[in-house]
């Protein structure tokens, strides 16, 4: 039994949805980071699947760009989190309430 590309695309879509909902619903900053990674990897899976379907190697090489960007993003994001939460107890986004209006 072979698994067709539609399954991969479906899986990627589900992963993307889980990630997107997670960012919007979860309040822990670290979990939000993970959800964003999930979204980026869903895009990667989609790239690879289409690359295979289209017989075009370009899609697979794009994945490397996305991976590098994701890594750079996490470095900066964790740096910001450490800078903010050094003096705090929790990493909950709701604790941030200096800016509002």
């Amino acid at each position: 039994m072979s698994i067709g590309p539609a399954w991969y695309l479906g899986l990627a879509a589900v992963l993307f949805a889980i990630g997107a909902i997670g960012v919007l619903v979860r309040r822990n900053v670290l979990v939000m980071f993970m959800c964003i990674e999930l979204m980026l990897n869903a895009a990667n899976l989609t790239f690879v699947t289409f690359s295979r379907v289209l017989g075009d190697i370009g899609g697979q090489s794009l994945v490397f760009f996305v991976l590098v960007v994701a890594a750079a993003e996490v470095v900066v994001g964790l740096g910001i989190v450490v800078a903010i939460f050094r003096r705090r107890k929790s990493t909950t986004a709701d604790d941030l309430h200096v800016l509002k209006g």
């Binding site: 964003i36 910001i80 989190v81 800078a83 903010i84 941030l96 800016l99």
Partner: peptide, 9 residues
């Protein structure tokens, strides 16, 4: 810092 985190997310 708060602005940066919101912008980042």
């Amino acid at each position: 810092g708060e602005a940066a985190l919101k912008y980042f997310i």
